[in-house]
Computed example of a mutant assay.
Amino acid sequence: MAAHIETGALVITMAGRWSVGQAYSLQRAFERCAAHQPPYVAVDFTRVVPEGGMPALLPSLVVLGQSCRRGITVLVCAPASALTGLLRRLPTTRIRFYPRLTEALSRIRPYHLRGPSRRVHRRFTPSPAAVGTARRMVRDCCERWRLDGVTDNAQLVVSELMANAVEHAGTEIDLTICHHRHHLRIAVADRHHGAPALDHKSSDGGDRDPRQELSLRGRGLALVARSATNWGVLGGTDGKVVWAALAAPRAARLRLSDLALISGSGYPA
């Protein structure tokens, strides 16, 4: 699984001879993608060699159909084949077909926000002011979604991730905040390939002084690790996404007043 930074899509690449085992690998990959709540998932089948006939393809129908019901738009990248023929019969408009991955990614709307949705997105220039704006976005999201118990940790996490991107990446930055089930997820994407790392060991094998670690890293990834239930890095051909998930209570049902998504126009650059 890889990230396409410019559009917010996650990409699953399948290769080799197709089999039922490959279909279940695809299912597990989709489950990991769904946890990130992306606007699109692109599945690249262009390097797959069909094997086993039609029965081996049937589990793919189930996997992609279930993913569409979650609100994810699926981009199937494959030449005309029995697979695309079967997929076109699915009763959904959330599957799109393209001959190549590059064409699929060029045709979609970057960071599309489906509504109503507990998800917001904003693109920033790499300026110090972006950190304060990101904190206000997180605070506003927690207020709208009634997640008061996680506000402080969420603001700390977004501050560290945004400041790290501003200082070390120096590229455009995409911030995405979403609430899904029991987690608030914060994702910061930039166009720099250098991945941050959290290493508690010094070069001689001993324990590193946490104060030294924070000083060297500059943006306190140790604080992110302590504040979030999970965090990680998704690589991609055009950059990376650093994400963190924080435990959050299940929010109450959306009210009409909650359906207005937070737009970039409400926040100064």
Rank of each mutant, 00 (worst) to 15 (best):
60 S>K: 00
61 L>I: 05
61 L>T: 08
63 V>P: 00
63 V>N: 04
63 V>E: 03
64 L>K: 05
69 R>H: 07
70 R>S: 03
70 R>A: 09
70 R>M: 13
70 R>K: 12
71 G>V: 12
72 I>C: 03
74 V>S: 07
75 L>E: 06
75 L>Y: 05
77 C>L: 11
77 C>Q: 03
80 A>F: 09
82 A>S: 11
83 L>T: 02
84 T>W: 12
84 T>N: 10
85 G>V: 02
86 L>W: 05
87 L>R: 06
87 L>C: 10
87 L>P: 02
87 L>K: 10
88 R>K: 15
89 R>G: 09
93 T>K: 11
94 R>Y: 08
94 R>W: 08
94 R>P: 08
97 F>E: 03
98 Y>W: 07
99 P>R: 03
100 R>F: 09
103 E>G: 13
104 A>Y: 01
104 A>E: 01
105 L>E: 09
105 L>S: 12
105 L>C: 10
109 R>I: 08
111 Y>N: 13
112 H>I: 08
112 H>W: 14
113 L>R: 15
113 L>Y: 13
114 R>N: 06
116 P>W: 01
118 R>T: 14
118 R>Y: 09
122 R>N: 09
123 R>M: 04
125 T>C: 11
126 P>V: 00
127 S>C: 07
128 P>W: 13
131 V>H: 02
131 V>Q: 06
132 G>N: 05
133 T>I: 02
133 T>S: 04
136 R>L: 12
136 R>A: 14
136 R>H: 13
137 M>Y: 09
138 V>W: 10
141 C>V: 08
143 E>R: 14
149 G>D: 13
152 D>T: 03
152 D>F: 04
154 A>R: 11
154 A>F: 05
